[in-house]
Amino acid sequence: MNIFRLAGDMSHLLSVILLLLKIRTTKSCAGISLKTQELYVVVFLARYLNLFTRYYSFYNTVMKLVFIATSVCIVWYMRFHKVVKQTYNKDLDTFRHYVVIPPCFLLALLVHHEFTVMEVLWTFSLYLEAVAILPQLILLQRTRNIDNLTGNYIFLLGAYRALYLLNWIYRFFMEKAQARWISWISGLVQTALYADFFYYYIKSWKNNEKLKLPA
């Protein structure tokens, strides 16, 4: 495992820990999109089915279980926790997230590496993950006061994707890995969606101002 991959995974893990910490300590999920979180549950369940078919490493197995468990846990908090659910910005989180699931699945049926159940589900999870952040970015744009934890959560999530791009470049040149266009392109699309957010996040950080996205 190269340094970019490890840093990417750690950034992803940290983002989830940060979000859970925000929810548990402030008893609030304000600014967090339930739609995005629900899409992540679908992404992880579809992708990590290979938990049962193939063993890679202890690290790999533990991380998969952590990502499945934490994503379910976050959705549970936002939907069912007596206090937390009342802080959810339901009226602002209006992206109809279920409409992106069928097109992603259809695309996975058409464009994949190999036509097997596991491979199509894996590919579906890549396509879905690429767009899963959209409801969150839309909610963010509608939120007047973005708290630091929410801003940092999205930054870490975007950093995870950007580091994975570096990881693929490293693997391609240093490990002579095969070209994997499906992962690369969907990863590139996913990272590109963060570009605008990154721009304003870094700007606010440099100017020592509160993060605010233009309407």
Partner: peptide
């Protein structure tokens, strides 16, 4: 193995 190429990623 072509499959193990990215499938060890998360």
């Amino acid at each position: 193995n072509a499959e193990s190429n990215v499938h060890d990623e998360l």
